[in-house]
Design a protein around this nucleic acid. Structure first.
Lengths: 337, 337
DNA sequence: ATGAAAGCGCTAACAC
DNA sequence: GTGTTAGCGCTTTCAT
């Protein structure tokens, strides 16, 4: 990098001290209008930009937020990043992105990286593999504010921002029942994830409400396209095949539709399908997918706002009360039901 | 943030000077084994982590890469980020992400932000609006290495990493012709973008090769889902409707398929469609979309590798020779052709 | 083999 | 109204 103009350069050229220049630049009342103007003019003439690194060192703050996320290449997460970046941008924060790639090991390294980079706070959605949360506890021990979103845990004293997974699942399954489904399958996420548990629970309770017996055989662990396609093929070949599916995410739901079509079944006539996410893809397929919108952008926004709130606080950990923000979901009805 | 252990803490506890501790920590040969061990043990006991900010200030380097990108919420770009982050991670760099949201104004602010954050280098794909490149020139003037990817310009002396858009377009249109299409439309990106021009050019030359006259009426500016859906409806209602479409991206291609189906046309029997991107969505729709894979992950990798190469160089601008790396594309044939 | 001191760029308490 | 000085955490000459 080229020599960057410093406050000293300006001071020397104007025969002033660096402190005067510093003060002039930030409109300190003591400074005479003359010098203030002179300093500012020369500064803009030379293209002076304050050295953020020096400020970082002095203020022990980087105005940077660390983001630890499973994978960017997933519509839901990229929507979240979008929301985060939007809020960060408006508040003059920058965002450093670290992917865990759904790997626990990599995630641990990510937490070290955010520490090394001295970010002011961290936003986290952890990997599917993660069972142990001590690496996040380490951040908290260092008094770095951490806000979890989407993939959260009660094991840590930390803020959470989540979609209303239970409610979303409930309205999705309720919708299937109202559309006439009697035998509804659920393709679920791992039960180690709270979203997996909440969505299963919503599914369960919606059945209950309509006096439909909960049948464990209709609940399958399948949250990726490939695993869901395979599982759907298997389950749809049975004589007593389901007439409705509630999938834990859109990729899984789309796989179910594909499998049904391949088996000569008609959607929604023979089989109805509801997804969760309301991704871009849901409006592209045929029939279009009914899906629960979990407002990723909004979720990202809220998570970031909560983090910024923490950063503003005088942090007295002793009386730290975790906040849990729940974003309502909404069913978007399309052709698949 | 809690008080972070510093080199001074260790020095005091051990009755040493900070310089000795510093040297011990980095295995300086002068240091006696005894002190080296003592220092290292205490360091790990206290959980010492070097303060990156202090190092940044001293070394005038942040081991951080700035990424300026139109929008994260787009499969192609998120694949690129993935590739970038992968390379950065392996080389112990962090990535700061700045979205332009396809806005020129925001992009200018983004360039200021990367300057302020003193990133070591910048990766850029500029917005559709961008006509003036002086904000990037400012980065270059500051001797900050800049590598452009996907959306590039010849107006600046800077490295470029692009997909082989011309070749991709050529093989796509060639494929349509070989499949029997006589009247092929092209849904194009703005001609202000090099990708818009190159893909049009590939389309043009493929027609030429097969002695098909180039017909400007068949070239439409439409690179989003909505605009393409509308344009496809219009053009497909004509008596002399096209029997083949080459779309500048997958969203546009999928919109064409949707429009065709809505008009009662069969894909691929009546109309064949090829997209460009090979996004996840292309394999989800029915019929599945034939598309040109532009290897976003690879492109991100290469762009980041090129930037790291520049960062390692002794930068003598006087003899700077821009490098242009072209990533070959590949046609992925599916049901839509 | 270790320490003292200077410096990276900036700010702020303390002079005058 | 402006200058001096110290300090943020670390490294690196230059002493000893």
């Amino acid at each position: 990098m080229k020599h960057q103009i410093t406050i000293k350069d300006i001071a020397v050229k104007l025969g002033l001290s660096t402190s005067t220049v510093s003060r002039a630049l930030k409109d300190h009342p003591d400074i005479s209008p003359k010098t203030r103007v002179a300093v500012k003019e020369l500064a803009s003439l030379l293209g002076y930009r304050p050295n953020r690194i020096a400020l970082n060192l002095r203020n022990n703050s980087t105005r940077t937020i660390g983001l630890i996320i499973p994978e960017i290449e997933h519509y839901f997460f990229s929507a979240i990043i979008n929301g985060i970046e939007e809020v960060a941008y408006k508040n003059d924060y920058s965002v450093m992105v670290f992917q865990s790639n759904e790997s626990y090991k990599r995630e641990v390294i990510n937490t070290q990286a955010v520490l090394t980079n001295r970010v002011d706070g961290v936003l986290v959605s952890f990997s599917k593999e993660t069972r142990d949360f001590s690496h996040f506890q380490r951040l908290i021990d260092n008094e770095i504010p951490v806000v979890f979103f989407d993939r959260v845990t009660e094991e840590l004293q930390a803020d959470q921002v989540v979609a209303d997974d239970y409610q979303g699942a409930f309205i999705a399954v309720n919708h299937l029942i109202e559309k006439g489904c009697k035998r509804i399958a659920h393709f679920a996420a791992p039960q180690s994830l709270a979203i997996g548990r909440s969505r299963l629970s919503g599914y369960h309770d919606a059945l209950l409400k309509h006096d439909i017996a909960y049948n464990p055989a209709l609940v399958v662990l399948a949250d990726t396209f490939d695993s869901s396609k395979k599982a759907a093929h298997d389950i749809l070949r049975n004589a007593d095949r389901p007439d409705g599916f509630f999938a834990v995410n859109d990729m899984s739901a789309i796989a179910i539709i594909k499998a049904a079509v391949e088996l000569g079944l008609k959607v929604p006539q023979d089989v109805k399908v509801v997804g969760f996410e309301n991704s871009k893809s849901s409006a592209l397929i045929e029939p279009e997918l009914t899906s629960v919108d979990q407002f990723g952008f909004e979720l990202g926004r809220e998570a970031c706002l909560q983090l910024l709130r923490r950063l503003k606080e005088d942090e007295d950990i002793s009386e730290f009360k975790p906040v849990k923000k729940v974003i309502k979901t909404k069913l978007v009805v399309r052709g698949s039901t």
